[in-house]
């Protein structure tokens, strides 16, 4: 195996262009997924490029009303950074444990593309754009176009996730709920993220997403658009209809962590609770 630790982003892009590598950032998913007998190497089926320490990918800046987060920023770094959006802080706070958060990166959470990745529902509703770079070009993709299934991404093998761009917005309500098997250090059974902007009792912005209830994070912009312009009271009067409409898109599965009935019921309950809080 040719496992390498490139020193610069440029070197990384050249290597990616020449070979078939798996990119490893903090390793908090891949090192577990590929674990083997103690004191033997993890059994990766591809050569590995370690990018955790690449200096070009560690930054967080605010430019042009847009937050730019380098992909190997760790969750713990983001948790304590003053620029990190509050909703993302809420999510990170209850992700895994301090030890994991010190290695886990935001780019890695996207790259792993798990339906239960807790930063994802937040990134979806903050309209996050993922900046992808290869030796040839830089392109930008909305996060929902990047992740297409569990572990599946529309990213080429010579590309790397360079940055996550989050347009700045103002909300009057934000909510992140994680429903795990216990209070900390657990994988989500369901997660929910919601933001809204209410002005003069009228919904001006409303976005919600659900994690771990489908192959990817569930967000439906059309249904969100339907409630824009409603008064909060109208929304609450019609809440059952709204819940039913969203419910049609929530099709969870049974697994070792929970069952589909619970996931669906609680997903709807969380949405209801968010709407009622507006």
């Amino acid at each position: 195996m040719k496992n390498l630790t490139p020193k610069t982003l440029k070197e990384t892009l050249i290597l990616l262009n020449e070979g078939d590598y798996k990119i490893l950032a903090g390793g908090t998913d891949l090192m577990i997924q590929n674990r083997a007998w103690s004191n033997t190497l993890p059994k990766f089926n591809k050569d590995i490029l370690l990018v955790f320490n690449l200096p070009e990918l560690k930054y967080i800046t605010l430019e042009d009303d847009c937050l730019h987060i380098g992909s190997t920023m760790t969750l713990e770094e983001l948790l304590y950074h003053k620029l990190t959006p509050k909703l993302l802080v809420e999510a990170i706070k209850i992700m895994a444990s301090p030890a994991i958060r010190n290695m886990a990166t935001l780019g890695g959470n996207i790259g792993n593309a798990s339906p239960a990745g807790d930063s994802l529902p937040v990134l979806y509703i903050l309209n996050a754009i993922v900046v992808i770079e290869s030796i040839e070009r830089t392109r930008e993709l909305p996060i929902e176009d990047l992740i297409i299934g569990p572990g599946k991404k529309t990213i080429q093998k010579n590309e790397i996730i360079k940055e996550i761009k989050i347009p700045m917005s103002n909300f009057t309500s934000i909510r992140f709920d994680k429903v795990g098997g216990r209070k900390a250090d657990a994988i989500s059974k369901i997660s929910f993220a919601g933001v809204a902007k209410v002005k003069n009792n009228t919904i001006q912005d409303f976005r919600v997403s659900f994690g771990a209830v489908g192959p990817t994070v569930v967000r439906n912009k059309e249904l969100e658009a339907n409630v824009i312009g409603l008064t909060v009271d109208d929304m609450k009067v019609n809440i059952q209809e709204i819940l039913n409409e969203f419910g049609n898109f929530i099709r969870p599965i049974d697994d070792q962590r929970s069952n589909k009935e619970y996931r669906k019921t609680v997903a709807i309950n969380l949405l209801k609770s968010f709407i009622l809080s507006l």
Binding site: I32, G181, R182, K183, A184, D185, Q256, R257
Partner: peptide
């Protein structure tokens, strides 16, 4: 056994 690792078999943490 379905819950065959420490990730899937949930025991209390300090948080609980």
């Amino acid at each position: 056994i379905v819950h065959k690792n420490v990730t899937d078999y949930i025991i209390p943490t300090t948080g609980d």
